[in-house]
């Protein structure tokens, strides 16, 4: 009953958004379709024009069912090996995002551990890490691609590095906080046991930081998909969702753009979902209140 109560407003808002979308599709495409009909010598007919706005091949705003059709056609009705397969492009982007996420999280946790243990690093490095948040990291993407390209590195790795760079900051900052978040009482207890630094780290600091880790992982997962997509833009990459977006933009294929957008949204949302589920599982195994 409570679940239904919570779902009702969300469904209502979602339905309203879809209705708005249809209205927008009619409004935005009306003029182009009407002009096309006039050029073709067809009499002005409101119903025919309305139908035209729903199935226009190059609409300013495609109707939702057109986008769904395009996604279905390119994802499931196209062989996986075809260059038109949406699943293939999504997989290429996901691969880079996951590799970047792994590298970025590992680096972030390591740096955070170093910062927590060396006080001079905390005072001198931390302000730079925070200040670097203000730098438009994504603008560095073309540089990384070009520089690594001259070293002969192409394909997955440059994209993964850009995604990793984006994941690094949220994880570092959250973990620097999380590794210090252990209960002072528990820390005192460890001291009375004369636990070594390593023991305190593995048995107290790391477990206590897990909620912070998962919170930052969700941010990092979204960032990794953005990083992978943007990394596919400046190189004229041949494959990946970013390349689909760019090609759709250059060749005026709105349906292709929207399909790539939907795929990117599904990627982000499912990464987020998997992480949230893992978090619940880990929390339950550790006996925390979920």
């Amino acid at each position: 009953m409570r679940a239904r109560q919570a779902a009702l407003p969300v469904l209502a808002v979602a339905a309203a958004l879809v209705a708005l979308w249809y209205a927008g599709a009619v409004a935005l495409n009306w003029q182009v379709v009407a002009e096309g009909r006039a050029r073709g010598g067809m009499p002005p007919d409101a119903w025919q024009t309305l139908a035209g706005t729903m199935s226009f091949a190059r609409p300013l705003l495609p109707a939702p069912h057109q986008v769904a059709e395009e996604v279905w056609r390119t994802a499931f009705a196209t062989p996986l090996t075809s260059r038109r397969s949406l699943l293939l492009h999504a997989w290429i982007t996901l691969e880079a995002a996951l590799a970047g996420l792994a590298i970025g999280v590992a680096a972030g946790v390591l740096v955070a551990a170093a910062i927590v243990h060396v006080r001079a690093l905390q005072r001198s490095l931390m302000p730079w890490i925070i200040a670097s948040q203000a730098i438009p990291v994504l603008a560095l993407a073309p540089i990384v691609i070009v520089a690594l390209g001259t070293l002969g590195l192409e394909g997955l790795l440059p994209k993964a590095i850009i995604a990793a760079y984006l994941c690094f900051f949220p994880v570092t900052i959250a973990m620097a906080k999380g590794l210090e978040a252990a209960d002072p009482l528990a820390r005192d207890l460890m001291r009375t046991y004369s636990a070594s630094r390593a023991q305190v780290f593995w048995k107290l600091r790391l477990p206590a930081s897990l909620p912070f880790l998962f919170a930052s992982l969700k941010v990092a997962a979204a960032a990794s998909v953005v990083g992978a997509i943007v990394a596919e833009l400046p190189t004229g990459a041949q494959a990946g969702l970013g390349a689909r977006l760019l090609a759709g933009s250059y060749f005026g294929q709105p349906l292709q753009i929207w399909a790539a957008l939907v795929a990117a949204a599904v990627l982000s949302a499912s990464l987020f979902g998997v992480l949230a589920a893992t978090e619940r599982l880990v929390a339950r195994r550790m006996g925390m209140r979920a």
Binding site: L241, L245, L261, S268, A269
Partner: peptide
């Protein structure tokens, strides 16, 4: 509206919004 829009807004903030640039 709050109960309906907040989950939607949270979802959107996890999406790669930058992709709307070509549109």
């Amino acid at each position: 509206l709050r109960r309906g829009l907040l989950p939607v807004a949270n979802l959107v903030s996890a999406l790669p919004v930058i992709g709307i640039a070509p549109i």
